[in-house]
Design a protein around this nucleic acid. Sequence first.
DNA 1: CTACCTGCAAATGTTTTGCCGAGCA
DNA 2: TGCTCGGCAAAACATTTGCAGGTAG
Lengths: 149, 149
Amino acid sequence: MSDSVEEICRALNLRVTGPRRVIMQVLAEATDHPDTVELHRRVTQIDPSVALATVYRTVKLLEDKKIIERHTFGDGRARYESADHAHHDHLIDVETGDIIEFHSDEIERLQEEIARKHGYKIVSHKLEIFVAPLDKQPKSTSRKARKTS
Amino acid sequence: MSDSVEEICRALNLRVTGPRRVIMQVLAEATDHPDTVELHRRVTQIDPSVALATVYRTVKLLEDKKIIERHTFGDGRARYESADHAHHDHLIDVETGDIIEFHSDEIERLQEEIARKHGYKIVSHKLEIFVAPLDKQPKSTSRKARKTS
DNA sequence: CTACCTGCAAATGTTTTGCCGAGCA
DNA sequence: TGCTCGGCAAAACATTTGCAGGTAG
């Protein structure tokens, strides 16, 4: 997503429109993993006329074209991040909802090995580790932390 | 889920009822990863009077109590499997929707290491590898295989 | 000018919930 | 008998889609 909106659209055979300009800009600037409603919130701060449906449409377009990545992290909504960074997986702090990115060549290698052993090649993969701070006591049945907003 | 419905309910302080009996039986017998609607379909073959809402309620109950595990695998719905087997992760064949279970101590160990390095302990984790058969040619932009049902 | 886009609202698909009668312990 | 359950239908969400007017190329 470091390329200009114009470049990306040209490459994908898409028209450069106002809404797309804003949505792609917001995605490029995001350092977190916003869901579609949050994206729309940010987009409408720049251009209030953009509809939620357009965000959904654009986001799906970009996901199909591998420009962004979709995650789910257990809760209902889909969350997105631009895919231009190197591949990485996620640590999710179940107490705060914080998301830490990490990468392990070693794990990736083992995955390849496992897939090959089963007669497959990897198309993509997703590793999410749900964690809690080391210093905290394990709470018996802590309520699920919903919204961070 | 190898324990009897009675045992499980007693352990969880839940009443043994007809619907629960059937739902837990279906879950115990499932060797795949059915979603809630599919579970309801199977349950109503045994007792047609059980409502979908009850399946949702029971399934959430059992998930909270760690009797079953919930997965999402990208598509909208939640899918379940009983949690009494040893922990494992999943290989998902993107062409057929087939799900293969696997386990790697080595990967698990690396995960622990990564979490610790970041100051966390693991609560749970989820590794999904989306794969395609080795013998097939990589199709440029293959349509996504949706429903296997 | 034409095909692609978009806002709007309605439709869909999934999961949750209120109500109240019914059944387990 | 009391408190939990469960069926039913409506609500609550997240996402998709039909349509009709707008606009990039």
